[in-house]
Write a protein that binds this DNA or RNA. Structure first.
Lengths: 347, 347
DNA sequence: GCAAATCTTTGGAACGTTCCAAACGAGAAC
DNA sequence: GTTCTCGTTTGGAACGTTCCAAAGATTTGC
């Protein structure tokens, strides 16, 4: 009871050699059905649990794949994690999730731990401020890595990301059609890859519409609700405040909407607000949030598949998958109101 | 490069024996400072990574603690997970999270995997439908288990849970003070421990107020937004519809509010709605959700501490911690409106 | 009935670590 | 000079598994 039963214990109980037990364990067709049955009942009787540590010591490969997530409290990343996990069901690998809380030091710790446990592959949503070396160290150790949603610039690893830039442009296009001319991009930091891509999308959209961006289009702030509140305050304080804002993500948008409400203003009426990510609750907010959907779950599955492929094919090539970003028009951009005064709008 | 460097490789490079390297690894004070330094640079040079599988093979104890969570997409449980993880920082243990998606079969798989990897302890938010045996099998294998937020009835394991019953009663008390007489409890299933406790709290509250519960107070439904929508529809279709509803959790409450809105009704005006859990976005909903807060993060930390204590003390006793449940009055219960017509209300 | 062919089963050597008992080196004490 | 002691270091035997070569059964062919 105190110390676990080993393969040798079952061998004894079943009257065979440990090699045979091992064969049974690995589902080998070599062993006779009757023997297999005897061994299996012995395993149940003794409450045998497989010792993967010992096994991978010999095999030099475990069945762990690590998922290193920057922020599980952000439903966006939680959805991603679940998408990944779902795609890993049925494979021989079992995913262990670790949360880094956007802290590179913690992330380094987690990376180390996963390597120490012999992880076969790692999917990572890198924490802000991750340096390329932290990632390369893993890949050069022979462990395939897939970055999801974010990428560390300079890192030599595969990635699965949404087309942030096109998504941003699409949002602006829509706003321009609704008649807006003064814009701002709220929240996030320039050192986040998603910030650069999404805001660049906004600039692309402006350029295409022949609108010169104001002096302070990009307003950096924490990618949180509080960040959204402060960024919106900042925007309103500008000499020429924007009439429409594209937010770094939905959480920031929630903050922006909140900040408007505090001032007696309403998103979709007094200011157009568009988010990014399309988290599940975006549609339950009031007003329902117009946002750029990135197919979070789908990207998660894609990342898992990519990782599995890289694991199978001994020597993985670095590849990148860019998923589509679609604008989901709801209420917070004022499309409903505009709808009455202008003609119908299709995203 | 291909195969990892071992303790013996560094021993060779540093000109010492493998035993000495092992000593350095474990931070023993026996080894001379100079030797330690030589070994350490050798480790860096060779890019050594510790092989925990091999180590725990000898030591029979790994540093993994497992967190088995029923639904990471529910922000409530995500918060719990993060609370736990936070409390585990700084300890020698590293937490691996797995999501069961409320699926007992999947959960069994995860349990097995964690035992196979030699987890030192497990914190579990049991999936609905978990049987006591699934939990007992682990504890009787000598691995301490702490249940969090939910408990499997009959299972012989410690638990950290909120005082659901008192919380439910407190919510009803408040609603009664606002003048409500007809109630319903929406969402969840009677086989969930939290459902039984929370709805019992509602019944307690009614009894204390001398109100006889109607024939269909408890309306079961999935503990999801969709469940909230359908449960509310069911409630409205009753011959004598309730004027106030207590929801199984905040997600259900979101569904209920949504369902009201679809009918042109407003929570807090046409019907009082109270949620449970106080997830982060409860305060950003419109109307802001009145709810019973259970100090999610705090309970998570508590669970982690309890587990660590059980791990340290060789043979763990089964203990239960019950945390406080506080009513947070916001808008969805109509307190604001009542405030104008009646006297001030304190929860 | 015997050799060949086919199924099954098996001992023993790894794998990378920890731990123990024992050895070593250098002063200290005699 | 010998013996003790103390501070360091070290070989070798585990730990529970997999894998290999080879041995034992059993069947087949003649």
């Amino acid at each position: 009871m105190s110390s676990r039963a080993t393969i040798i214990d079952i061998a004894g109980k079943a009257g065979v050699s440990k090699s045979t037990v091992s064969l049974v364990l690995s589902g080998s067709p070599l062993v006779k059905a009757e023997t297999r049955a005897r061994v299996e009942t012995a395993m149940i009787d003794l409450g045998y649990v497989y010792n993967r540590g010992a096994a991978s010591l010999r095999k030099a490969r475990s069945n762990i794949v690590g998922m290193v997530i920057n922020d599980l409290l952000n439903p966006f990343f939680a959805e991603l994690a679940v998408g990944i996990e779902r795609a890993l069901q049925g494979s021989d690998y079992i995913p262990f999730i670790a949360n880094t809380g956007e802290n590179p030091a913690r992330q380094a710790q987690v990376f180390r731990s996963m390597r120490e446990h012999g992880a076969t592959g790692i999917i990572v949503c890198p924490a802000v401020g991750t340096d390329a070396e932290a990632v390369d160290e893993i890949t050069s150790g022979g462990i395939p890595v897939v970055q999801a949603m974010r990428r560390v610039s300079g890192a030599n690893a595969s990635a699965v990301i949404p087309d942030n830039r096109a998504g941003g442009a699409r949002a602006v296009e829509h706003l321009v059609r609704l008649g807006h001319r003064r814009f701002a991009f709220l929240g996030g930091y320039a050192r986040m890859s998603a910030f650069r891509e999404r805001s660049q999308g906004l600039l692309d959209g402006l350029e295409r519409a022949g609108i010169a961006p104001g002096p302070e289009v990009l307003i950096e702030a924490p990618p949180t609700k509080a960040g959204g509140v402060s960024a919106l305050a900042h925007a309103l304080a500008l000499p020429e405040p924007p009439t429409a804002v594209l937010c770094f993500n939905d959480i920031v948008a929630v903050g922006a909407v909140h900040a408007l409400a505090q001032r007696g203003l309403k998103a979709g009426v007094d200011m157009a607000v568009i988010g990014f990510d399309d988290i599940a609750e975006a549609q339950h907010l009031a007003p329902a949030l117009t946002t750029v959907a990135v197919d979070t779950i789908g990207l998660g599955e894609r990342a898992a598949q990519m990782l599995l492929r890289q694991i199978e094919s001994g020597h993985p090539r670095v590849e990148t998958y860019v998923g589509e970003a679609r604008l989901i028009v709801r209420e917070s951009c004022g499309a409903a109101r505009a709808h009455a005064s202008q003609e119908g709008v299709v995203a």
